[in-house]
Computed example of a mutant assay.
Amino acid sequence: MFSHDEVGREFIHALKYRGERAIARWLGESLALAHAAELRSHLPVDTVTWAPTTAAHRRARGFDQAETLARATAKALRVRPVRLLRRLGSTAQSGAGRADRLAGPGFDCRARAAGRRILLVDDVVTTGATLRAATAALVGAGAAAVHVAACARRGRDRVSAGA
């Protein structure tokens, strides 16, 4: 995972705001490599899914960056990507203050999560609210296990690119 400054920020912004989707393959492979050992030491995942962006962001960008990353990660892990979550509401996390971010988005999970061992992918972790809400929806729908992976971390608890 990258810190969301300098190089890490450039990678994410190239994908998210400039539509450079080719970078998703490299980021997805990096996520797969970073989590492969952890996933082998636990029950292996059988599904990769993502925390979907807002409909407005998807329309404006022409794609959902988290979905693109999840599909690339799934391909590298040789696991099937499955859309399991639906975002509730239209409020975006980007540009929101900490309190609003912590309130986070809501997600609804489709019944296909029951019994699955899932890797949940997102692009950037700021407060962790998106991943917590998405994980709660998956667990609430009966997921056997949920592992999370993100490309970058913002905020006080940053992780260096080498970690």
Results as ranks from 00 to 15, higher is better:
R25F: 01
A111N: 10
G8Q: 05
V7A: 14
D157P: 00
V82S: 04
R83T: 11
A66W: 05
T47G: 09
R61F: 06
R9C: 04
A114E: 14
G140H: 08
C109Y: 10
W50I: 02
R154S: 15
R86G: 00
G155E: 09
R112A: 15
R153N: 03
P105E: 02
A60V: 02
G95P: 05
A51R: 04
A149I: 01
G106V: 01
F2G: 00
L131W: 06
R158Y: 06
R71Q: 14
S41Y: 01
V121G: 08
R87Y: 04
A133Q: 11
R154P: 00
Y17H: 13
E29C: 07
P81N: 08
A22R: 11
A92K: 04
A144L: 12
E38S: 12
E20Q: 13
T73F: 06
A144T: 01
G115R: 12
M1D: 03
A72D: 11
G95V: 03
V159N: 03
G115H: 09
R112I: 00
I118T: 08
G95L: 03
A22L: 09
F2W: 15
R154Q: 12
A149R: 07
L85M: 07
R21G: 13
T135M: 01
A24H: 09
T73D: 11
A134D: 06
A14K: 08
G28P: 06
D108Y: 08
A163L: 12
R40Q: 13
I12G: 07
C109Q: 11
G97D: 15
D5A: 12
L33E: 14
D64K: 02
R154W: 01
V45K: 07
R18H: 15
T54Q: 04
P105F: 00
W26P: 00
P44M: 05
R86T: 15
L39K: 05
A34G: 14
